[in-house]
Amino acid sequence: MLHYRTQGYNGCAVKYSPFFDNRLAVASSSNFGLVGNGRLHILELTANGIQPLKWFTTQDSLYDLAWSEIHENQVLAASGDGSIKLFDCTANDFPISNWKEHAREVFSVSWNPVAKDRFCSSSWDGTVRIWSPHRPQSLLTLPTHSCTYSASFCPHSPEIISSPSTPDPPATAIPGQPGGPAPPAEALTHDWNKYRPTVLATAGVDRAIRTFDIRAPQQGPLSTMLGHEYAVRKLAWSPHLSNVLLSASYDMTCRVWSDRSDVAGGDMDMMRAGPVVGAELGRMGRHTEFVTGVDWCLFGSEGWCASVGWDENLYVWDVRATMS
Rank of each mutant, 00 (worst) to 15 (best):
H156C: 10
R5K: 15
A264R: 06
A182F: 07
R233F: 09
T141V: 13
H190P: 02
H287T: 03
G8Y: 10
V128P: 00
S79L: 10
H228Q: 11
H228G: 08
T211W: 14
V308C: 06
G266I: 07
T141E: 14
S242N: 13
F107N: 01
G293H: 01
N98E: 11
H156R: 11
A203F: 10
G265F: 07
D21H: 15
I96H: 01
Q137L: 14
T224P: 04
S110E: 03
D168S: 13
M1Y: 07
L281V: 06
A47T: 14
T127V: 03
E186Q: 14
G227D: 06
S17T: 11
N10M: 07
D93C: 06
S324A: 08
G274I: 10
D60S: 15
I174M: 11
K234H: 14
V14D: 03
S162D: 04
H287M: 06
L246W: 05
M1Q: 09
R260P: 00
L246D: 04
D117L: 05
Y16L: 06
L76P: 00
R233Q: 13
Y149K: 05
S258C: 07
K234E: 14
Y16S: 04
K85V: 00
H228T: 06
R207G: 02
S121I: 02
T166R: 10
G33I: 03
A216E: 14
L2W: 03
L139G: 07
A115W: 04
A47G: 15
